[in-house]
């Protein structure tokens, strides 16, 4: 019962849009996977690092203007790399004090950070227009249209996302299957064992956290340039939980699972959209409220029936990450 004329008219465009979001969430989930899935770092401020990547990338690439900070007019790759570096640098600053403490403190710091950074972008209007946001040009549009006239420009994004996903996937897999990855796993399982085995745990956690946040920064950069617009409303904490669900669905600890999970997540989110568009069961506001409940239900169901996710490596989600309590046995 496909009733909505808009979707029939533009199936290709619709599918491309969904796929692009799968790619963007896939990047975020890959970033979260090295942190949580491989190292056991509890980052619940994902969207904050995405925001830093997006805003930095925007500022670096837009033309100069007096109504916002800079506008440096650099080409897109500079924006992408700059966004990654900025997200990584912010992650580094947050991690300096926090990673020495018990793992719960990272959760507290990151969840606070993502709210603070959104409010900073909202209120510091001189920087990026505050609530008005910035217009960000999509790169390579002229080039694409002259080279491939008539082909949907969104294919450019698909190509770029596939390229990025493949690069990060290969890098992450190599890291995972190396002595570096072994140390990350041992930290995830029990930090004290890694310490007793002579590993400088703090340094490994730092590298894992910063690298994961850089990938999230890349996702932010792509997102800003794809939408063509950036403002604080794109960076609500809800997105962080979507990324978590994607990772947990696909299988924590597994890089393929992270990308697959992003696919399942989009299927779920778009599926609930169809409830509205085609079946007209609920109104738009009802749907938005219902989606929260459904997301919760999905998570509960996941815990009950498949706690390791579809392709999960870990046999359980919330145990085995090393007991965070005392540092060593008491007498």
């Amino acid at each position: 019962m496909i009733g909505a004329p808009l979707q029939i008219a533009n199936v290709e465009g619709y599918l491309l849009t969904v796929l692009i979001w799968v790619g963007i969430y896939g990047l975020m989930a890959l970033g979260l996977n090295i942190q949580w899935g491989q190292t056991g770092l509890f980052n619940i401020g994902v969207i904050g690092f995405v925001a830093v990547g997006g805003y930095t990338s925007a500022t670096l690439t837009i033309p100069p203007s007096s109504s916002y900070f800079g506008g440096f007019g650099f080409p897109f790759p500079v924006g992408l790399v700059g966004g990654m570096l900025a997200a990584g640098f912010v992650a580094f600053l947050i991690a300096i004090p926090v990673l020495r403490l018990r793992e719960d403190y990272l959760a507290i710091a990151t969840i606070g950070f993502q709210e603070i950074i959104r409010l900073v972008y909202l209120n510091e209007e001189w920087y990026a227009g505050g609530p008005r946001g910035l217009r960000v040009e999509a790169p390579y549009r002229d080039l694409w249209e002259s080279a491939l006239p008539g082909v949907n420009f969104n294919w450019m994004w698909i190509i770029m996302l596939v390229l990025l996903l493949v690069i990060f996937y290969v890098v992450l897999e190599r890291l995972n299957n190396s002595p570096f990855g072994r140390v990350l796993k041992s930290i995830r399982e029990d930090e004290d064992v890694a310490l007793a085995a002579g590993k400088y745990v703090y340094g490994y956690k730092m590298r894992s956290f910063v690298f994961g946040c850089m990938i999230m920064g890349a996702a932010g950069s792509i997102q800003a340039h794809y939408i063509g617009y950036i403002n604080p409303d794109f960076f609500w904490p809800l997105i962080t939980f979507y990324v978590w669900i994607a990772l947990l669905l696909g299988g924590s600890g597994n890089n393929k699972g992270a990308i697959l999970g992003a696919g399942i997540l989009m299927l779920f989110l778009e599926g609930t959209n169809l409830l509205k568009a085609d079946l007209a069961l609920v109104s738009s506001t009802q749907l938005d409220a219902m989606r929260f409940a459904l997301v919760g239900l999905l998570l509960v169901g996941l815990m009950q029936y498949r706690p390791e996710g579809v392709l999960g490596e870990r046999r359980s989600l919330f145990e085995g990450g090393g007991d965070s309590g005392g540092s060593a046995d008491a007498d």
Binding site: P179, R182, V183, K185, S186, R188, E189, D190, D192, V193, A194, A196, A197, G198, K199, E313, R314, R315, G320, A328, D329
Partner: peptide, 20 residues
């Protein structure tokens, strides 16, 4: 070593050995 054995439960025996 630890009084209560500390396991890297979700690593194989070989991975345990190759860590150190």
């Amino acid at each position: 070593t630890f009084q209560i054995t500390r396991d890297l439960t979700e690593m194989t025996v070989m991975e345990n050995m190759m860590l150190t």
